[in-house]
């Protein structure tokens, strides 16, 4: 076992599974939200350019 990791008892697999789930779900939420916001902002930017071209 890698030395810097905490030394847990027989239930270590369950504990790591829970923290792994947290990493996947929360990390996934952060990435998804940031990507969605970036896409929305660039879509608005493109609309602004189209608006200026039209006027």
């Amino acid at each position: 076992m890698i030395d810097f990791l905490p030394h847990l008892d027989k239930n270590a697999a369950y504990i790591w599974a829970c923290y792994g789930l947290g990493l996947v779900l929360i990390g996934g939420a952060v990435i998804g939200v940031v990507l969605k916001a970036r896409a929305a902002k660039s879509a608005l930017g493109r609309m602004n350019v189209s608006d200026e071209d039209a006027s």
């Binding site: 939200v33 916001a37 608005l44 609309m47």
Partner: peptide, 15 residues
Amino acid sequence: TLMRAEIWTRRAARQ
């Protein structure tokens, strides 16, 4: 962040 995205999306739709 999601609210900001939604505001930008609604603005783009209006434009």
